[in-house]
Design a binder for these strands. Structure first.
Lengths: 219, 219
DNA sequence: ATAAATCTGAACTGACGAGTTCAAATCAGG
DNA sequence: CCTGATTTGAACTCGTCAGTTCAGATTTAT
């Protein structure tokens, strides 16, 4: 009689459309704000504008839902990052300016809600889904580092950077970017103001260039 | 009738000893291996060799148990790290060797099970206990960075490093250490072989020194 | 229009775990 | 050795939530 429940239900096109996509999007959103254990399937169904049995109809169970939602998000984050790495080319003008631009774009991706939620969720479920972290990490970290290493290798060959191990250079470039931001965002809990992002990016590039610029002709 | 339950019960000195400490230790151990939600108070009680009501007698509820266990662990990790930072002094011999020793020790702390579990737990409960991460982060990260900055400032003044912002230098030194190790340990899921730890430490120090060594007297 | 597939809401089962209760056992101190 | 505090085990309450069932509504395709 006193039913005022569930006023936040979008009608969402009845019939058979891409319920599946709606469900996965909703799942990631709900997992992101509640965490795996606190998220309940009912809420995901409501967020997707769909009945609970429909959720189970598309994705067998909660675990499956989580895996698909997380892997999809990881895919998207990887695509964004790879697109940015593509920008690293033989500099037409200033190498520093180029790297700062790249650094800035990567940090913005790494600070946005989706990336943060993704890290949080995989980190949190490390014990329960060890294989999942493997997949996510490959997408969001390893792959990006490899792509960046490729680009840096070219810069070494063309003499814009000193000869070095490109994989290590890439690892350290990313370290100088991500670690300070992780720390300043309290592991993703706080929003980092753009001014700080800029500062971290420019400090990282500065240090990176000091360490990897070509040696002044010795002797 | 078919009761074979709870065969892993240590007797643990009956009467009133430091049950409290036993309980907190057990709590951290169980939270570490199960995560907050999966950990059940019964298991903590068993691990502590104590009855369930005794747990509730000492610490009001599960949340309280978690907070105390985590804060205690954070305190311990901080102490370890600060002790290592103390080693940074005016180098009697080689600055590089000194920094590599410090880097190595810090990485070992950061890779051990306790630190990893601590990061995992706080990261995972970011949403539910936002204030807790504040506390932990201050202990394990901010404080250590500040202490290191102090030491680096002295090295700048004595001319062992170029003039620079010591806070930034400390932040980047730690970034070059922790980020690669986090990546290689799959966010703490995998054990990192000592050889890799050494490699990361020495690469980090090398890059740090290239970026922060005193400028060769210009013009 | 009609048949097959899908979706819906609501109610249901079953497991699990937090926190409590209590009477009996155990301890510590005077 | 007596008294009061603490511990213990076991059973219990209570809420939550994953996953299921089902009869009826809706959709899509032919």
């Amino acid at each position: 009689m006193t039913d005022v429940v569930a006023s936040t239900r979008r009608p969402a096109p009845r019939g058979r459309i891409d319920k599946r996509k709606a469900i996965l999007d909703a799942a990631f959103a709900v997992f992101a704000r509640r965490g795996y254990d606190q998220a309940c399937v009912q809420e995901i169904a409501e967020e997707a504008g769909v009945a609970k049995p429909t959720v189970y109809n598309h994705l067998s169970d909660k675990e499956n839902l989580f895996r698909h939602a997380v892997e999809t998000a990881a895919e998207a984050v990887m695509a964004d990052n790879l697109a940015v790495v593509e920008l690293v080319r033989e500099p037409s003008g200033d190498l520093r300016a180029l790297l700062e631009d790249v650094a800035d774009r990567m940090l913005r991706i790494c600070c946005d809600e989706r990336s943060r939620a993704l890290r949080r969720l995989t980190y949190a479920q490390l014990v329960r889904f060890p294989d999942l972290i493997e997949v996510v990490h490959r997408r969001t970290s390893t792959r990006v580092a490899e792509a960046l290493a490729d680009r840096l290798a070219r810069l070494c060959l063309s003499g814009h950077l000193r000869p070095c191990d490109p994989a290590q250079a890439a690892e350290q470039f990313l370290a100088l970017l991500t670690a300070p931001v992780e720390a300043r965002s309290r592991l993703g809990g706080r929003e980092v103001p753009p001014a700080e992002i800029d500062a971290v990016a420019s400090a990282a590039v500065d240090t990176f260039l000091r360490a990897y610029r070509p040696e002044p002709a010795t002797s």
